[in-house]
Write a protein that binds this DNA or RNA. Structure first.
Lengths: 124, 124
DNA sequence: CTGAATCCATCCCGATACTG
DNA sequence: CAGTATCGGGATGGATTCAG
């Protein structure tokens, strides 16, 4: 399980936000959902590209537990599940955008790269 | 070494900022330095409290390599080293503050805790 | 005082295979 | 389609000891 669970007693807000969003995949996932449209499991997986089922389902489960994403399951055949951001999740988006801005500027200065990443807010 | 080195080719700004600031201690360290006054090694260690030498020196070294903190060494006896934020490091402070704001609000809602942490911007 | 060296436990992440 | 089960490598965080 994630680091989030064991240290729920660590009261520092910064530790808290790191607990919620650290890991390799959570920010990319939130970014995809930030567009507003609910996405299906396979859709997220396809957009991210190189994520495995284990990491995707685990990340989604933890984000759901932490109140960032909402999971809506439709009992159909074949099964359909859609993920979207909760209100709390939408609240973080500006913060992430600001962070991405800083990071982009930093990267341009130090690496002169174009940030051709499809997964974050800085593209286009 | 940090994850930062191997994936320098990962061009996503969000990955970049996570690379620079993830880990258990870097944000607390930056927070202490954000007050503006240069701090000595032992001073940082005392303020954080439960960090070991290994983690502190490693974190500082990586933050220095990434251009966030500046290390000033005075050749005296006993040796004295002072750490402070670079301009780039100061630029991140507002972002971290915003993040801490969100996290604090989130924690108050879900845990009703008082965030009695000395290490972050939300105290006092 | 400011670290470096060594050793060790944990856990994050991933590949592969399988299920309702 | 939307996941779970299992196994394993490598990174990360830490205790202890030692050094300039």
């Amino acid at each position: 399980m994630s680091i989030t669970q064991k240290n729920q007693q660590s009261l520092c807000p910064l530790r808290h936000i790191l607990n919620v969003f650290s890991g390799k995949w959570k920010l990319p996932i939130v970014c995809m959902l930030a567009a507003g449209k609910p996405l299906r499991y396979s859709s997220i997986k396809r957009k991210i590209g190189d994520i495995t089922n284990v990491m995707l389902s685990q990340s989604l489960k933890e984000l759901e537990r932490d109140g960032i994403v909402h999971r809506e399951q439709y009992n159909e055949v074949p099964p359909r599940v859609e993920y979207s951001l909760t209100d709390k999740g939408k609240d973080v988006v500006p913060v992430i955008q600001q962070a991405a801005q800083w990071a982009l500027k930093d990267m341009q200065q130090s690496l002169a790269c174009g940030a051709n990443c499809e997964q974050c807010f800085t593209t286009k």
